[in-house]
Computed example of a mutant assay.
Amino acid sequence: MSDKQERDDRFVGPVIKAGEMAEAVLEAVQEDNEGRQILTEEHASYVRIWVMDECILNMDTVSRMLGRPISIGDIEVNMPGFSGFIQTSQSGIRFYAKH
């Protein structure tokens, strides 16, 4: 496996449709994953968010960023894809790398 492939496999996180939700998710990821390396790739229709090894996305944090309550379903309809493995709960979403 190349160094680039190994590095890429360690970055995980959501792909979110561009707009208000993408902005809120990015702000929440930055807050919920303080101290972790975070990369973003912005396109016309979506934003790809990568976090090294593990990305935590708490619904309370996203709700606060948006100024209204949201659910996992609100995130899911705006998330056409993701990198890594995923675990969901009532309180949030965890993206993680397989080591």
Rank of each mutant, 00 (worst) to 15 (best):
S2W: 02
D3V: 01
D3R: 10
D3Y: 04
K4R: 11
Q5P: 00
Q5E: 14
E6H: 02
R7Q: 13
D8L: 13
D9I: 01
D9E: 10
R10I: 02
F11S: 01
F11R: 01
F11I: 01
V12G: 04
G13H: 08
G13R: 07
P14N: 09
P14E: 12
P14L: 10
P14A: 09
V15E: 11
V15H: 08
I16E: 03
I16Y: 04
K17W: 02
K17M: 07
G19V: 07
G19Q: 07
G19W: 08
E20R: 15
M21I: 13
A22E: 06
E23G: 14
E23W: 04
A24M: 10
A24R: 09
V25T: 04
L26C: 07
A28Y: 04
A28P: 05
V29L: 03
Q30S: 02
E31P: 00
D32M: 02
D32L: 00
D32V: 06
N33E: 02
E34G: 01
E34R: 13
G35W: 05
R36V: 01
R36K: 12
Q37R: 07
I38Y: 03
L39V: 00
L39P: 00
L39S: 07
E41F: 10
E42D: 12
E42F: 00
E42N: 08
E42K: 14
E42A: 14
E42Y: 02
H43W: 08
H43S: 10
H43A: 14
H43P: 00
A44S: 15
S45Q: 11
S45F: 05
Y46Q: 14
I49W: 00
I49P: 07
I49T: 08
W50Q: 08
W50V: 00
V51R: 03
M52A: 14
M52F: 11
D53R: 14
E54Y: 06
E54Q: 11
C55N: 10
C55S: 11
I56L: 14
L57V: 14
N58E: 15
M59F: 14
D60G: 08
D60N: 15
D60Y: 11
T61R: 13
T61Y: 08
R64Y: 05
R64A: 15
M65A: 15
M65N: 15
L66N: 06
L66F: 12
L66V: 13
G67F: 07
R68M: 10
P69Q: 14
P69D: 15
P69N: 12
I70T: 12
S71H: 11
S71I: 02
I72R: 13
I72C: 02
G73A: 15
D74F: 10
D74Y: 08
E76H: 06
E76D: 12
V77A: 12
N78V: 05
N78K: 10
M79H: 04
M79G: 04
M79R: 12
P80W: 05
G81L: 00
G81K: 08
F82E: 09
S83K: 10
S83N: 03
G84D: 03
G84S: 05
F85S: 15
F85L: 15
I86A: 07
I86P: 00
T88E: 15
T88P: 00
S89D: 10
S89M: 07
S89C: 06
Q90W: 09
Q90H: 10
S91I: 12
G92T: 06
G92N: 07
I93M: 13
I93W: 09
I93N: 06
I93D: 01
Y96W: 14
K98I: 05
K98A: 05
H99A: 09
H99G: 09
H99I: 03
